[in-house]
Amino acid sequence: MARKPEDYRTDLWVDWCPGCGNFGILTALSQAFAELGLEPEKTVVVAGIGCSGKIWQYFRVNGVHVLHGRPIPFATGIKLANPELTVIAIGGDGDLLGIGAGHFVALGRRNVDITVIMHNNQVYGLTKGQASPTLPYGVKTKALPAPNIQDMINPIALAIASGYTFVARAYAMDTRGLKEVVKKAIEHKGAAFVDVLQPCVTYNDIYTVQFYRKALYKLEEDPSWDPVVKSPEEDIEKKTQAFIKSHEWGSRIPIGIFYVNPLKPTYEERLKERIPTYLEMPPAKQKIAVDGGRPILTVKDLVEVFGDRVVYRRKKVN
């Protein structure tokens, strides 16, 4: 029986501000889950703190609501311990690129098969509108006492430089486009990043729906745009074209898939090289006790596994 998007939703009242871009993300993700036919029990949404960090409770899949900035470490632990789970880490721009920026970079280096969805509204909404790491220098959104004194991070460029193997940008109000990108991100084997432009109706009076309606264009409109790396030699070229595109931020802002590299081994595959049984017997599936609680390892096993620490008593001469 095919599941419908509403099957992936709880019946809780969604308490974002009316008109918030987050509604579009919630809708698109539910649709993507349904179209991919994800099993709710095998799906885990890990969320951070902030307005975006409320989303986990609205899904009828496993939800793990963690600390500010930490969705990626938790998601990584979940995925590595049980790689058969589909793990989606969700955070805001402050969560992923401010307090959690170190983790954001580290996931790229590892290429763990996790999808990272970033709600990018350029402000700290739940604390009433401070500037986030994605707000450009000199821009004054309405709650700021003065124009932003810090430069913005370019999330797409950072993701590419960090080693993410799927990098895309989507728009929260274009739920169909967002859904399609999210589906591809989840299906991608490796670390996937989707930068979701999400208007904040309450605190961001610059990057509004009206602004985005004029500025956004789709990368795929250019028939020659091909973000996929097809051989290792192509990698730098594809990264470079994506990097250049990522700097378009102003009156024209591209959305769509910037870069995909399906060739790089995932962290799980790298682990399998060290432990050949890893995928069949990941940590979560290993038996650790027998006969009502005896450890699976015997002293004899210890002597074999930790033989480098064993010193035998020499036979006595007499």
């Binding site: 963690v66 938790f74 632990g77 590595l80 940590p283």
Partner: peptide, 14 residues
């Protein structure tokens, strides 16, 4: 990240 990952793994029953 170390404690975060350990907690994530613990949630899987590991």
């Amino acid at each position: 990240a170390a404690i975060g990952a350990a907690l994530g793994a613990a949630l899987t029953g590991t």
